[in-house]
Every structure is written in structure tokens, then in C-alpha cells.
Nucleic acid binder design. Structure first.
Lengths: 164, 164
DNA sequence: ACGTTATAGTTACAATTGCAACTAATTGCA
DNA sequence: TGCAATTAGTTGCAATTGTAACTATAACGT
């Protein structure tokens, strides 16, 4: 009732954005498609979310991390990590104890069941990554690495809003 | 009680995934950071979601699309488009009428209010994209375009699961 | 020692999203 | 024709996620 929906002016001087050439859009499509393709593999098999898998991956590399450290290394926020850990502990894939000197901290590690899953999923994830990278020749792969390094470096802290 | 949480084996032969070198992970960080930085600009100003902005962007370029066509061009699913359109129409930013020959179809266009927003947001989005690309020299930018073209082409249809 | 401030992690609730089922209109073909 | 199969779009519900508030512990300054 109260909305003045007019048909549409439509002029030439509008300089519309060409989505399919727009970097953020292209990154988003690529990222989602690739991540989803990989995630499908292990989601069906283990009922494991991307978030949970990332937590497991860092716990496989770094032993005895706290939840906060996991959050740092996965670039996820602490609530997401807390929830992923709750599920992983419940499923018996991660072992959690409390730090001796600081009772706030948890000390996390994969259980045997966790390791079995990790050792199955990690090669699978790498294989999928390879499939994607095989679309490129070795020169392109080298440039891609270099470019991502640069962009990711330039983008550090863009996420954390500067508020103290 | 029923969960056999064992401490943690931890051996050297596990070949853990190095998240920070893993392509899907890096793409995900980059994509989210960049998209979010841009979205922040217009979300505060216009209470416009990324989804809604994408819909507006294609409607700015292609006149009289149906919702399905919008979905195709934005690579979003039809439910997301339907909801974005509901909000955009409600806000008086998009005009919707029904196709003459086919009453299922909608015929969509930006309203004047929609154009005003578009004409403000589009340059802003381009400026942000430029900020990111300015981290690269022109050779790197050329490679990036080429590489994204290849990867996106190779990835077409990975999303649509093959089921008929 | 004691109150203030900071840190680790969880919980509660709202907003978003994703999937499946649904309506309505159109097409196709027997 | 007329009835099954498609297509456009919406709705409802459950699962996911994001934000803020909260608990518990530790650190700091006086």
C-alpha cells in the first residue's frame, strides 16, 4: 500500500556492475563450490561439518591447544569453535581436559577415533584440492600461490573491526 | 558416559593437513573477508544484504528478468532469490509484475528508489574491489583473471549434483 | 588483600539459510 | 481434449550461524 513502486527508469548512464567479472563475486562462487565439493565427501561419511573438520585438522597438527588457539588458527570465531568442540567431544572424536595452571583453559587433542577420521579425510581433501589445481599448469599454480599470499596478507585485520 | 574419549595417540605418521596452505581454506578466508568488507559499506547505509545487492546488480544490467533468470545469473538458489525479492519489493526497490503470456513468471525491474541505491552502491563496490586489486601489480592482476577464469570454468556444474 | 579489568568458554535468542513440500500455471503427448 | 509431467515461485520447518550477554577464572594495580 504505502510503497511507491514505480515501473523502472532504466537509462544508459547507470554503469551497472558486471557481477561475473567482479572479483568478490567470483571468489565467492569459486570458494563455495570447491569447499562444498570437498565437504560432501566427508559429511556423508562421518557427519562432519566444515567447521568441525577444520578444528580436527588443527588439532592434528598442534597438540594440546586451547579452544581460543584453535579459533585463532582456523580463523573462526570462538562461538563456532565452542560449538564444534561440543559436538566433537560428544562424538568421542576430541578429548578435552582442563589446563592445570589455568582452569579456564581447555587442553584439546584428537582421540583415537578422531585420528582415524583425520587419517581418512586428510588425504581425501588433498586429493580434491589436487583435482582443482590440476586445471592449472605449473606456472599458473605458482602465480596463484603468490597472489593468494599477497591478497591474504593485504587483507589481514580487515575482518577484526578496529574497535577496542 | 557412553563415549570412549581416550587421551590422544599422536604419532608422526599422520600427515596432518596444513590448513594455511590449503587452497579451499585460503579461498574461503579471502572471499569472506573481502565480501564482508564490501557488504559492511552498504548494509549499514541501506540495510541491504549481499543477496539483495546481487539481485539488484543483475536487475540493473538486465531488464525484465524473471526470478529464475535472476537466480541463474547470480548463482543463487531460487529460494534465496524469492526471499530477497520479497524484501526488495516490500522496500519499494524492485518493481514486480506478471508476464503477459505466462502468469507464473514475474517481470522484474528496479524502481527509481532502487536505481538511486544502485547508483550509490555500485561505485562503492568497485572502489573496494580496486583497493584489493591494488595490492597486486598489473602482471599479477592479469594472471589472477586468467586463473579464476580457468578454475571457474572447471568448476561449473560441480554444484548441481548430477541427479536427474 | 581486594576490587577492577581481562580472558576462556558457554548459553540464549534472533536472524539466515537450506531443504522439502506445496500451489499455481504451462507444456506435452496420448 | 485431458491428464501426467515441468516449471515458476512461495511457504514452513529445522538446522546453522551471529551477536550479545553471561559464568568462571585469572591477572593487575593499588
Amino acid at each position: 500500500m504505502s510503497h511507491p513502486r514505480k515501473p523502472a527508469p532504466a537509462g544508459a548512464e547507470h554503469a551497472p556492475l558486471e557481477l561475473e567479472r567482479f572479483l568478490p563475486y567470483r571468489l565467492s562462487i569459486l570458494s563455495n563450490t570447491v569447499s562444498q565439493a570437498i565437504a560432501d565427501d566427508y559429511q556423508r561419511r562421518y557427519d562432519l561439518s566444515v567447521t568441525e573438520w577444520r578444528v580436527m585438522a588443527v588439532l592434528a597438527r598442534f597438540h594440546g591447544l586451547s579452544a581460543r588457539e584453535v579459533a585463532e588458527r582456523t580463523a573462526m570465531d570462538k562461538v563456532a569453535v565452542s560449538r564444534a568442540l561440543a559436538r566433537l567431544v560428544e562424538a568421542g572424536r576430541v578429548h578435552r581436559e582442563t589446563h592445570g595452571n589455568d582452569k579456564r583453559r581447555s587442553v584439546l587433542s584428537l582421540t583415537e577415533a578422531g585420528w582415524l577420521i583425520h587419517d581418512d579425510v586428510a588425504p581425501m581433501a588433498r586429493a580434491r584440492e589436487r583435482e582443482v589445481l590440476d586445471k592449472l599448469d605449473s606456472e599458473e599454480r605458482a602465480w596463484l600461490t603468490r597472489i593468494l599470499d599477497k591478497l591474504l596478507e593485504g587483507v589481514q585485520g580487515m575482518g577484526d573491526d578496529g574497535e577496542p
